[in-house]
Design a binder for these strands. Sequence first.
RNA 1: UGGGGAUUCGCCAAGCGGUAAGGCAGUGGCUUUUGGUGCCACCAUUCACAGGUUCGAAUCCUGUAUCCCCAUCCA
Length: 751
Amino acid sequence: MRESKDFLRTIVEEDLKLGKYNEIVTRFPPEPNGFPHIGHAKSIAINFGIARDYNGHCNLRMDDTNPTTEDTKYVEALKDAVQWLGFEWGDDVYFTSDYFPKIYDYAVELIKMGKAYVDSLDEEEIREYRGTVTEAGKRSKYAQRSVEENLDLFQRMKNGEFKNGEHVLRAKIDMSAANMKMRDPLLYRIRHAHHFRTGDGWCIYPMYDYAHCLSDYIEGVTHSICTLEFENNRDIYNWVLDELGLKLPRPYQHEFARLGINYTVMSKRKLLELVDGGQVSGWDDPRLPTIAGYRRRGYTPESILNFCDQIGIAKANSMVDVSQLEFCIRDDLNTKVPRVLCVLDPLKVTIENYEGHEEIDAPYYPHDVPKEGSRKMPFSKEIYIERDDFMENPPKDYFRLTPEQPVRLRHGYIISYKEVVKDANGNILEIKVKYHPESKSGSDTSDIKVKSAIQWVSAQEAKPIEVRLYDRLFSCEAPEGIQDINPNSLQVIKNAFVEPAVITEKPDERFQFERHGYFYADPVDSTDEKPVFNKIVGLKDSWTKKTKTTESAPKLQAKKIQIEGEETSMSKTQKTRFDKYTDELGLNSEIANILARDEQLSSFYEEALSLLNSPVSIANIVVNEVARELKEQQLDQLKFSAKQITQLVKMVNDETISSNIAKQVFEEMAKSGENPTQIVETKGLVQISDPSKILPIIDEVIAKNPDNVLKFKAGNTKLLGFFVGQVLKVTDGKANPTVVNELVADKLATC
RNA sequence: UGGGGAUUCGCCAAGCGGUAAGGCAGUGGCUUUUGGUGCCACCAUUCACAGGUUCGAAUCCUGUAUCCCCAUCCA
């Protein structure tokens, strides 16, 4: 677990501490109507991860309440994904459809309680009656039906006596609710359709909002974690479980922000569009952000899990940079896979002074990867090197082979340029070089300095392979659709050459082709006769990056200017109040403004003012502290009175307590309704202003933090606050902060 | 437009009244037979903006701005 907890784990720990649950139960509840993508991986990591961290368990549940879109092939894909990521769901996969009978019984309960009714409006009418976000809806006349009639109708809906859409079951909540979801939400609809699991056993199907909370409850789920777009649905979730009066404990819903990654799409709809439109080769196309796609491309489960861990969990909509994912796979593979040599764009090289043949022994892993293993690399007169590892007229930072600059063949000899062979158009066909016999890797006595080592393969023994180079599927960060597709997202190289050990020894299924990147033998198309490798991700490349970025002009971003909106104008009575507060009572305009505009606040204020003539202090505490309590509850629900506030203010005014302590006391008052003087007395909160009592504490704090004293002396004046804070902490906030401030400043200056 | 969320570095993200964590990206340097890796350093006097409260505010109060979600018999 990371050192700082995410907000979900914080909630879980809190609930555990409170003894709300004995065991944590989560669930991963996909609808089996599409292939899982990396967003699902995030959800899987959260739900299974929390269960693991708190010794609970996580159910895999298919949310199969819509028979027209769901299919068993998707449940297989979902199971695969969970399994591949390394999680276990116990003995069974659960299905919402398994609970259909129970869910039906609960609906009957609701009808009996008069909390649900059969509505017979048609689809369009229901929409109209629902109203809009600004206008209240109106209730259907069918909501009047008696319990008996509802029961009868619902029974007959179940029996299949009606056509699709003829009736629905609705919760009776509130057609004018500000939350649209609460305007008598649908619970059941008629669907004469074949369900992939229940077959034709049912012709009514529960809606998500009704089935989901009950499924969670039935399974004993404690924390029902979903994405942000379900925030509005939380009210129904709670309504159903509360109204049914179910035996506790019951689950609660918590929402987090779904994952977005730039240069790709994550919605089922857009993904389906790409697959159906033939833009990609299928759900497992390596360019897709589907689990199947990443898997086929060569990503490891560890890298994906690690990514999910790194990006964190929060409630702000966000778009993660792909480079973060790319880092995770490189980081994982770096310590795992063998290094081999592969030439993607071959240039023939003849070594004029070399005759014969030899086998060079080369380790699979670099010095910094603690793994054993090596292979033999055939070496002979004719080899291939990468075309761009030779330049006739190189730029000055070019480290590879040039007419003037020798280069090392990785694990082999150093070669020097002799001549170049070109065709009629000036294209380089071949280069001729000489090698330095005494420069062999490991026993080099040549004393020749080279700037780099390049990959090569022996022309005779190299194995031809197909290599598929993938780039981002879209050319813009937030693609809308197929118009944003990157036309060069797939480049197929039919005639790359790899050293023979890759094919004959097969030391692994993933490799680093040195200086290129990480590659994976395509699990579908690759065969021994015709090997195919997918590029998983390139190596970080500070050379081509440097060359490129000098070309592209840096973009200047203008700082956003905030347009100030206007505050609504005051009414006449508010204005007179405002004038009185500023002119007569001497309040500053901000405080006066807030007070004048708020009926409850101002009446509370004036009541207090009539008991104690301290207009400014009272106003400050009313506006800053009382206002907070008033956000949660009404005036008459407050635990404390205006009189108590004046007692508090009095103690601050006569310096019995500091304003710091006053806040603590206020919080206590708001919670318990106890008298402020009482609180101060029983807790012994009287302010300490006597320097002789404070000084020793300051000395102690200074002695404990020599580093910070040094930093302070070096000019970090912000640290004054740190020292004051420490002293306040030691005295439980009782030290007079003004005095402490002065004393600390003095002390720090002289010590 | 009513309601519900959100806003801390280019991208994620800690932080909950007392020194602005961390990762990715970026920039320099060292190491290196991968222009890889590793290591070191740099990278927010400021937390959407404007006020207020406080000895002290990213954190509390007020207002404003911007973005996301909700009017499927989808989930």
